[in-house]
Amino acid sequence: MLDLNNIGQRYGKKQVLSDLTHRFESGVSVITGPSGVGKTTLLRLCASAERPSQGEVRWCGEVLSRTPRAFRAGLGYAPQRIDFPEDITGMDFLLHMAALKKIGLREAKSQGRALLDRLGLGRDADGRIRTYSGGMRRRLGLAQAFLGAPDILILDEPTAELDPQTAGHVNDLIFEKDAIVLMTTHLAESLSGRSFATLNIPMAQAD
């Protein structure tokens, strides 16, 4: 489980989050709130990409900043934007990300291919990323987050830029995952009929 204990984040004079306490357990948790409230900041804190200026994030009882290596071994993170290396293929990108996650080449190939097929990129796996549309890049970014056997998935707007049908397929993949899944979305209606927890960050949290 992932615990937020009175966390807050400040950028200069701007307070983005303050005194937020919550426990994320297995299953999908959708983080909602108005734009600019700090949803992406919260995901970055949970992914250990940033340290909170106040409070602490705990992973299985351990303070996250003290156990990043063990935590990162089971982390799948898809940020909102990735500046992909444009001149390599989608499959090459996935294989390199798999190598960074200590996944052997054979397993990486079979899992990478399966992920691309699930996300509708199977036929484009050998196309260079520079030829990918915005939606295809979004799905490739998601695919790298699912590599390995992540215990925790942190997905920032996973269905943005996707048409409703594709968003449905992406949500199918997300919701069948047996892990702690944190995600933000502006398309809450695309999740109707699915079971998930919600953490709403009110605007009052921000200055």
Binding site: A99, K102, G104, A114, R118, L121, G122, L147, G148, H169
Partner: peptide
């Protein structure tokens, strides 16, 4: 695009720096 319905296999993190080197 065609979306497969097949489950995605899990992959264990049993590789090493050699995999990264080869990549």
């Amino acid at each position: 695009p065609s979306f497969s319905k097949e489950p995605v296999p899990l992959a264990s993190a049993n590789g090493s720096l050699i995999s990264l080197f080869l990549s």
